[in-house]
Write a protein that binds this DNA or RNA. Structure first.
Length: 191
DNA sequence: TGCCCGATTAACT
DNA sequence: GTTAATCGGGCAA
């Protein structure tokens, strides 16, 4: 029986939570799969939305851990984050890619695609496939429509610089499952 | 108020 | 490899 992730799981440093999320499973209304790629955003990090202090958009990041922070990216896409650390530290993990296992038909309908590998391989793509929008902003991760379970087997984790940012771009705060076909982009070294 | 640009994606060449 | 799509946050004026 898989172990459900509860709020205490998220009440730690983003740098501990992020690698621990690789191999965990996420479902939204029963649709989802294995997390294979995430990135850590710390409040002292110039690339983090919380870096310049609280605003209407990032308010959830300043609340307690174990909640979803959803924001619009490039005016088009939605991106899903998990708030971590003690309340007020305003740090979060961005979910970047999922290996789809449940609800493939619903994902294909939402994405208008048939190719499985591209269904959830990117932060905007996975939100579209799982039906995540701003309606999910601020919802608890241990209650419906979310279901989040710890990984049950060991995984090999690779680390690298984060994608698509200009500030603090050199920090190796991107985590992925070694060799996964569902990554948004390959990691430079997989050894 | 106006302007710039981003934790992106897909459709181009 | 390049670029358009599209919108709200953040900051200058």
């Amino acid at each position: 029986m898989p172990k459900r992730l509860i709020k205490s799981f998220f009440s730690r440093s983003v740098h501990e939570v992020a690698p621990d999320l690789i191999g965990a499973t996420l479902f939204v209304n029963g649709v989802g799969g294995r997390l294979v790629e995430v990135e850590a955003y710390h409040h002292t990090d110039p690339a983090a939305h919380s870096y310049r202090g609280p605003t209407e958009r990032n308010a959830v990041m300043f609340g307690p851990p174990g909640y979803a922070y959803v924001y619009r990216s490039y005016g088009i896409h939605w991106c899903l984050n998990f708030v971590c650390e003690p309340k007020g530290s305003a740090s979060a993990v961005l979910i970047r890619a999922i290996e789809p296992t449940e609800g493939l038909a619903a994902m294909r309908r939402r994405r208008g695609l048939t190719e499985e590998r591209l269904l959830c391989s990117g932060p905007g793509r996975l939100c579209q496939a799982l039906g995540i929008t701003v309606r999910h902003n601020g919802l608890a991760l241990d209650a419906a429509p979310f279901e989040l379970f710890a990984r049950q087997t060991d995984v090999e984790i690779v680390v690298g610089p984060r994608i698509g940012i200009t500030k603090a771009a050199e920090l190796p705060w991107r985590y992925g499952e070694k060799g996964s076909r569902y990554l948004s982009k390959p990691f430079r070294r997989e050894s």
